[in-house]
């Protein structure tokens, strides 16, 4: 088994682009189990970064570090430094509630609130003390998520009445309504049909100009279609019978898919793996 090679990940973002999110030697434990080890990762602003890798490799775990969702799991412990706009967010001094307004998240399974479409959008704005006009916010967010034309006549109807793909775009609209800087997407299309998947992918391209997007995906075609950079994680079996994930390689997406440096990456992206 090859040991983790952080050097390749640091060099991935060499240009002068400003870095939105940075992970420095991040390890996550669940209880005494080391789930992900020593991840170094730079995520530039206004790019789409895809995390790929087999199940249990820790890509979702690392994603949840960026908005401190791991705080909600009592046994999870995060080590190392995570920086957002150059500011450390992993420490006790940063308030996770405030952080989560600036780093939004979209989940694997669409999870709209069992409320009206309108209320789904306005909830985040209300709790965060939005000062502007709510009708205008709802329209802007739904347009931003390419959903406005489909739902503009039924804003008072339940968000649960929409199709799966529409629900997921509603969740994206809900996330952008609070004007985050980063949107984290945890396998956002795995519960959607191909047509809805394409719509969400097109939407991600549109959102790139305003937001930094990190997406976890099992679908390698999706990673190669949407992302600018790709991080490949792998998992190795531990002595305790669990799995420990690590970052194998992080580079421009073309490089990962056409000319990876690591053999594991080559095997994985060519489908000869797992």
């Amino acid at each position: 088994m090859a040991s983790p090679t952080p050097s390749s990940s640091i060099s991935a973002v060499a240009e002068s682009k400003s870095i939105a999110l940075k992970a420095e030697k991040v390890s996550v434990y669940y209880g005494s189990n080391l789930a992900v080890k020593d991840v170094y990762l730079d995520i530039p602003e206004h790019e789409i970064v895809a995390f790929i890798g087999p199940s249990g490799c820790g890509k979702s775990t690392i994603l949840r570090c960026f908005n401190r969702m791991n705080d909600l799991i009592p046994i999870a412990k995060v080590e190392g430094r995570i920086l957002f706009d150059g500011e450390e967010i992993s420490g006790k001094r940063v308030d996770p509630v405030e952080l989560r307004r600036r780093v939004g998240m979209v989940f694997q399974k669409p999870n709209p609130f069992p409320k009206s479409i309108y209320d789904n959008i306005t909830f985040g704005a209300k709790i965060n003390g939005y000062q502007g006009d709510y009708d205008e916010l709802v329209e802007r967010s739904l347009r931003g998520a390419a959903l406005w034309d489909e739902v503009k006549d039924k804003l008072k109807e339940s968000g649960l009445g929409l199709s799966g793909g529409q629900q997921q775009r509603l969740c994206i609209a809900r996330a952008i309504a609070i004007e985050p800087e980063v949107i984290l997407m945890d396998e956002p299309c795995s519960a959607l049909d191909p047509i809805s998947t394409i719509k969400v992918e097109e939407l991600m391209h549109d959102l790139k100009s305003k937001y930094t997007i990190v997406i976890v995906t099992h679908n390698m075609q999706q990673a190669s279609r949407v992302s600018d950079r790709t991080a490949f994680f792998n998992a190795i079996a531990t002595d305790k019978g669990g799995k420990m994930g690590y970052l194998v390689e992080y580079d421009k997406t073309e490089a990962i898919f056409s000319n990876p440096k690591e053999e594991y990456t080559r095997d994985y992206v060519s489908g000869r793996f797992g």
């Binding site: 509630v97 989560r100 307004r101 998240m105 989940f107 999870n111 985040g124 809900r174 996330a175």
Partner: peptide, 22 residues
Amino acid sequence: PDSLRLAGYALGATRWQVVRSH
């Protein structure tokens, strides 16, 4: 389901806001 709570937290809600509203 926990997905409802996570949705609230991800929008920057506090624990009581998640409980109270959802």
